[in-house]
Design a protein around this nucleic acid. Sequence first.
DNA 1: TATTGTTATACTCTATAACTATA
DNA 2: TATAGTTATAGAGTATAACAATA
Lengths: 156, 156
Amino acid sequence: MATSDLSSDSLDFGILHDLIGYRLRRTQLVFFNRFAEACTDLGISPGLFGVLVLVSRNPGRTQTAIAQALGNDRSAMVAAVDKLEKMDLVERRPSLNDRRSYALYLTEHGETFYQTIENRVREHEQGLESLLEPGEKDLLIDMLARLCQAGRNGGV
Amino acid sequence: MATSDLSSDSLDFGILHDLIGYRLRRTQLVFFNRFAEACTDLGISPGLFGVLVLVSRNPGRTQTAIAQALGNDRSAMVAAVDKLEKMDLVERRPSLNDRRSYALYLTEHGETFYQTIENRVREHEQGLESLLEPGEKDLLIDMLARLCQAGRNGGV
DNA sequence: TATTGTTATACTCTATAACTATA
DNA sequence: TATAGTTATAGAGTATAACAATA
């Protein structure tokens, strides 16, 4: 194979490298994969981790409340809570004032497990954060939060 | 329904709001949905747009070369190129020096179409970019590019 | 009538393995 | 033997529609 063909040298990305959306997608994929590497032995995906955080910080909320906060459909919560319940991390308790809904709580094991995985996630975050200059992370988070607000309305 | 229950007030996101990965996921979802709104009538998803850009800027490359540049598996390119070919935007030409592979080119219609959609995407980008202060976009792109490099090796 | 949890369903995206024809 | 394109397949992730129980 000659090196003069068109198969091996780097490609021109044109507008792609200047598009926030494209950069977001690629970077988010990196974070997702790195998260999976860091937490796969614990059986927790980024999505499940989000549920754990919200249940930990907001015990007693319903599945729908957690789903709405995370921006997911409530139907997606069923399998997620099923999985977390089978792992003995979360439990559904009958809601006191509304017999249609469950109140979600971390189990005793879930509380200690949560500390473990939150530490793991903090380490994971700090590892990636080290690619930024001091103070840049806060600005990055702030910019992403502002861009996210475009999702709340149709206009810009 | 009383307002004193635990269903309606905003939730505590704990560590989640400080995690770059979580912010990336939410923001990327907003961009994806906005892109879809802007380009759904043209039948082009963000992924297909990436293929169009790379074929436009690098005519004659193979499917595998495009796939690798975009970080996708070769097998995913088959359906993508099939779709773009049915839309008369891209054509597979037999490769001159390797009868296993195809060389990808924009069709004549693809060239004019590409100008249309690139303009559409530029408008879309500028709309979201307006949520940032002047000069912030370049820094954002730069930070995302640095974070992306964590995907090229296992270390940090 | 509206809402909660649930089920069934489907659609996208993505990755893997195996096949063929070439190299 | 290795590679390009292809196919079949499977796994996430996500969304919609409809249902029973309850509000």
